[in-house]
Design a protein around this nucleic acid. Sequence first.
DNA 1: CTCCTGGACTTAAAGGTTTTCGGAAACGTA
DNA 2: TACGTTTCCGAAAACCTTTAAGTCCAGGAG
Lengths: 337, 337
Amino acid sequence: MASKRATISDVASLAGVSIATASKALNGRQDVRAATRERVLAAAAELSFQPNALARGLISGQTRTVGLLTSDSVGRFGIPVLLGAEDAFGAGEMAVLLCDARGDAIREQHHLRALLSRRVDGLIVVGESTNPRPSVSKDLPIPVVYAYGPSEDPDDVSFVPDDVGAATMAVNHLLALGRRRIAHVTGPGHYKAARDREEGLRQALAAAGLEQAGQTLSGVWSQRWGRHAAEILLMAEPEIDAVFCGSDQIAAGFVEAARERGRRVPDDIAVVGYDNWEVLSTETRPALTTVDMNLELLGRTAAQHLFAAIDGRATPGVHKMPCQLVIRDSTSPPGIS
Amino acid sequence: MASKRATISDVASLAGVSIATASKALNGRQDVRAATRERVLAAAAELSFQPNALARGLISGQTRTVGLLTSDSVGRFGIPVLLGAEDAFGAGEMAVLLCDARGDAIREQHHLRALLSRRVDGLIVVGESTNPRPSVSKDLPIPVVYAYGPSEDPDDVSFVPDDVGAATMAVNHLLALGRRRIAHVTGPGHYKAARDREEGLRQALAAAGLEQAGQTLSGVWSQRWGRHAAEILLMAEPEIDAVFCGSDQIAAGFVEAARERGRRVPDDIAVVGYDNWEVLSTETRPALTTVDMNLELLGRTAAQHLFAAIDGRATPGVHKMPCQLVIRDSTSPPGIS
DNA sequence: CTCCTGGACTTAAAGGTTTTCGGAAACGTA
DNA sequence: TACGTTTCCGAAAACCTTTAAGTCCAGGAG
């Protein structure tokens, strides 16, 4: 460990100038002769001087630090958002203070106080699902941006994936391939994501003047449920030629069970997943056509808007971020696979 | 946004006492009459006063903040370590400053300077693999602990999973089931993890006086390679009765290909994976017996040792953390599955 | 009555930096 | 020489909190 950290006054006395002059030289301000600046810089380098961010923040009132409050980091949605945000901040000079509330409101309050006490310049709240969550922004002296899971308060700034639009896009892709008997297997109905994706399907079918093949099958977000749903569906609606699944896990299970029952994918049944969780979507056979929610981009965008809000240019409301359809073999036109 | 943040002097004047008395009352110190303390606390509550951590840190020299420097957050190893660390810190009053260097040494230096300038009390460096990495601790005024990826410098404090021991444990499990012709499929040889796990296998076989079935097959950490390796292996060594795989991805691919070739798992061939990546290990059929590296525990332990080091009680060296064998259906004794 | 003790409170310094303002020197012009 | 201007530098305040040291007073002991 180095002895003691050098302060600006150490630098100043080594360079033979006052503290004020040293500060000006180090911060590239005018009113310093070139030769003097040179001496100060040399002294700072010799002492490997690092300005004390606490003292600086105390004066300026800006810590150049933002809080990242997540309800459930362990979920695979929070992580990319977090990375995108960290990316956007890290490019500049911002630092990220990470807090994980583990879905506990008490713990969230606790972390919120800690962040406030550390005088963060802003806050990003990352949800674990797209279900709206209680606002934390009330009476907060700093701007807050919600990512993935929006705030219940429409005056807050939220960024969410456009699940409805993405589902419509996915189903339109199936329609363009000539599929007409499209079924839907998805997760629990208490997830807004499940309801939104079903709504997107509904809109696409309505626009094409078609009926959905059978009822929507709601289960859980697992491969096991995908397999089970395949059995139910192939029994009840044997003539389906496409399935839109609410997640890649469900799609992977569906593909596996369908193949075991002698249905070829994509020839007999085209399958579309959701999430583009690469360990599943690229490793299943055939590789899955799926919706990528661009979560890193969403996180980055949220971070950029937080910057704007810190500068006083907030843009309230729920912003729907476009998703992207990644086309792979599970929806290849017949004869190509 | 609230108007302006209350300072302790606002609290003091509202309570009709001096700043010093207010400070003592708020910090639960002696030399304050109960009634006075009462008044101060009431005033603080009314103004929703939050002490300024910057000013406090400036005086005490302790920021109660640690840096978490990761080379590759996106990897699935960094995340649990990070969570465990965050957990250990969050229980107290510590905050975590997250930096992702994206495997770039320049960016790492940059982040290091930023953290130092923010006067963090300590640093955890999370590696993306168990390969030793260059030390950052040289001449740093704060303690550093390495997690998952150890430092090259043996005087640093590092926590890594005990891959050799875990592999031995996994193979002993296969031996206990009566398997004698055990093969090994793993990832690239430039990963220390691959070499260590092979070494563990070697030790277990040597202790049992057995030879490995065929050569170790080194490829990449993917499901695709697992399938490919299965084809090679079942051709070259058709009489194998068990496979120890270097990752769950490889194991999942192996199981799938083996089943397609008419080998039953676990009856004909028992399979053990590595990582306990649940989306794979619990969803494959049969569910995978696999090694769990207890990464959250590893992260938590690293964090606790960082606390100790901050208090001046460092414990240099590479600490091997025990792993755990999670037994599932892919190694059930014959007749039980 | 005086002195001492201890409790309750205040004053002031310290921590490291930025910034405003004033001062000093140098130079040019009348 | 007197004066204005420009250039460079330093003194000091400010940010907010903690804490060491000091003040004041009541009450008890001698």
